[in-house]
Simulated assay, not measured.
Amino acid sequence: MRKKETITTIKAAKGERKLVMLTAYDALFASLLHEAADMLLVGDSLNMSFLGEPDTLSATMEQMIYHTRAVCNGAPEAFVICDMPFGSVNTPDEALANCVKVFQQTRADAVKIEGGTERAPLIRHLVDNAIAVMGHVGLKPQSVRSEGGYIVQGRDEESFKKVLEDARAVEAAGAFALVIEGVTPDLAEAVTKAVKIPVIGIGAGRATDGQVLVWSDMLGFFEAFKPKFVKRYLNGAELVRNAAKTYAEEVKEGKFPEDMHTYGK
């Protein structure tokens, strides 16, 4: 059993070891994944992967708390982060009230909040009230409608400077780490060097302090589309389909259940 990470050990990892983060949405997969991962993120990506929505925006506080409780129950030794859903952190007071709900109703260790300079005062308010915050800069899925899609950041000077400024603001506000998503590798490297907190990349190249992937992407269960940055370490969907097909054939042919699967007198 691995020793549970803390904010202190995560921050100390910068420059010393690469950090591994995976998403998890339920107790079963949390129990399977936590040994490999330093952190488990209960991402609002569950809305796309498991509810079939086109984006993350309709995820609710009730959903996030439910799934975070499940992950904490399945992997009590894991460092668990709850993604704060769209619309739950519009003001500092609203954000604090919702984050307090997360901490009171789950055993989450931290929350994750999208946004940079505009979110810095809010992050500071949370940190000052004992809420551990992971930031999220670069491509922000919760801004997909207002920004006109999933647009890679850092390909022009303006977005390069903006993401760098955002990362510094999030660090100054007291975040213990940040996710950087959908940016050019040179921007991710610049951000990683510019801040003293760990930078976890997704679609951001190798120069970051760690990586995060959605587990259903990484294991090949989600087939609707495959982002360029995803590497599939298992063809999970095919394995499940084949297993279900074999089960169905054995039922139809009378091969299942066998004697070993039945109760004796």
Rank of each mutant, 00 (worst) to 15 (best):
G116W: 04
K265E: 15
T117K: 09
V152R: 12
A173Q: 02
I81Y: 07
K245F: 10
T23W: 03
E16N: 15
V144M: 02
G87M: 11
A175D: 08
I7F: 12
A167V: 08
M48W: 05
V100R: 13
K161R: 14
E77N: 14
G116R: 05
A194M: 09
I151L: 10
F29K: 05
P198T: 01
Q142G: 07
K4W: 00
S159C: 07
D209N: 02
L96Q: 06
A110I: 10
K140E: 15
L96F: 09
I81C: 08
D156P: 01
V195F: 01
L57F: 00
V133C: 09
H34E: 11
L22Y: 01
V137H: 02
E238G: 00
R107M: 11
D259M: 14
T68Q: 13
L41T: 03
L187E: 06
T117P: 04
A120N: 10
V179W: 02
V230G: 05
L28G: 11
A97N: 14
R155C: 14
N90K: 15
D128N: 11
M61P: 08
H67I: 12
E62I: 06
I200T: 07
T91V: 13
K193G: 08
I197L: 02
D259N: 13
D166T: 04
L40G: 06
L234C: 15
K196M: 14
F221H: 02
M48A: 10
A27V: 07
A36M: 06
T91N: 12
G135W: 05
P85S: 09
R119W: 09
A169C: 06
G43T: 08
A190T: 03
A190V: 03
A27C: 01
A248H: 13
T60A: 10
T117C: 11
P85Y: 04
A237T: 05
L126N: 03
A177Y: 02
V42E: 01
I123H: 03
V89P: 04
L122E: 05
G149C: 04
V152L: 15
A190R: 03
L46D: 04
N90H: 13
V89R: 07
P141N: 12
